[in-house]
């Protein structure tokens, strides 16, 4: 179980901006969070809310330009990843921090066998000999549940099904015993029965290997099932953060509350009419000077248009960036 005192990764005041022909896109605005050893941190939020750009910024995986990391620190292993030299960063990427992306077909190289792609990080980061790397590659494929692993090492990505390719991606990410695994929508392209297989596998591996995981998804059902703690992003900011049960039982930010109501259920009560969030997501052409959700918010007050709320404590291990929610907590205490 996660230990609340320690952190493996600490992100402070991260700001990422894109320069485009249409002007600046403020994709990530002053994002701060930490990851604790062994925990599974879920990240949810609308399309374009900055989930992927945040995680790519941590490892400087974005093309610079058009991207620019304007400020922030990313503390990992006693260093600031935004300020280390290129060699150190390369050693961390795919080494101590592994990652899995949404579409396994674009992330695997079609012209190399799966075995070669698994062995490469083992030789590069762990300095294994060819035969030791091959043995380890076979073990990794077995670990992620691919039958007949020794033979499958010689196959090319297109010879695997979608679910198996995602398993291969996970095997590659796990190759160097990472302390942190970042998974960006790792099951979104998969069918539910295959998704269930992958989730089961990830939970088992996390327990066995004791790593911390950041899991990005737009699927609240997936989050409910796997996360210990959840970050909710909106308009390039973290608007709410809470342990998973607390978040679902007690959403405090109006965006989170509305989001939880828009998803129908397969087992619970069936609503006659779906709740909707009116309006469109914000245009991120400048650093926010007001609450990004205000135009769509049913609870907005006059102050929301003047100031961008900071995250304030609203419950046990729970904070939200909303003036109205903070005021409610305040008045409950007097």
């Amino acid at each position: 179980m996660p230990d609340p005192g320690q952190t493996v990764l600490e992100v402070r005041n991260l700001k990422t901006v894109f320069q485009t022909r249409g002007g600046e896109v403020h994709a990530v605005n002053d994002v701060s969070f930490e990851l604790r050893p062994g925990e599974l941190l879920g990240v949810v939020g609308e399309s374009g809310s900055g989930k992927s750009v945040t995680m790519m910024s941590l490892l400087k995986l974005l093309p610079i330009p058009p991207a620019e990391i304007r400020s922030g620190t990313v503390k990992f292993d006693g260093k600031d990843l935004l300020r280390v030299d290129a060699d150190t960063l390369r050693a961390v990427r795919g080494g101590k921090i592994g990652f899995v992306f949404q579409d396994p077909m674009t992330s695997l190289n079609p012209v190399f066998t799966v075995g070669m792609q698994l062995m490469e990080p083992l030789r590069k980061h762990m300095g294994l000999s060819k035969s030791a790397a091959r043995t380890r590659a076979r073990e990794l494929l077995e670990l992620v549940g691919i039958p007949d692993a020794a033979r499958r090492l010689k196959d090319y990505p297109h010879q695997f099904s979608g679910g198996m390719r995602q398993r291969v991606m996970i095997a590659i990410a796990l190759a160097c015993d990472p302390k942190v695994l970042i998974a960006d929508e790792p099951t979104t392209a998969l069918d539910v029965t295959i998704q269930a297989q992958i989730i089961e596998l990830m939970k088992e591996l996390q327990e066995r290997l004791g790593m911390a995981v950041i899991w990005i998804t737009h699927d609240l059902g997936v989050i409910a099932g796997i996360a210990d703690r959840v970050l909710v992003m909106y308009g390039g900011q973290i608007v709410e953060q809470a342990p998973v049960r607390e978040l679902f039982a007690n959403p405090r930010h109006p965006y989170t509350a509305a989001l939880l109501k828009t998803v129908p259920s397969v087992r619970g009560a069936r609503a006659d009419r779906l709740t909707i969030i009116e309006g469109q997501p914000p245009i991120l052409n400048a650093a926010p000077a007001a609450c990004p959700f205000r135009d769509r918010c049913e609870r907005r007050i006059e102050r929301c248009a003047r100031e961008n709320p900071a995250r304030e404590p609203v419950g046990p291990g729970h904070d939200a960036a909303c003036f109205v929610a903070a005021a409610e907590v305040e008045s409950a205490h007097v």
Binding site: G221, V244, R245, F248, S265, R267
Partner: peptide
């Protein structure tokens, strides 16, 4: 199997 695989957006149900 298909219905059981759908993750419910409620941690208590998991």
């Amino acid at each position: 199997a298909l219905l059981s695989a759908v993750p419910e957006a409620d941690p208590a149900m998991h």
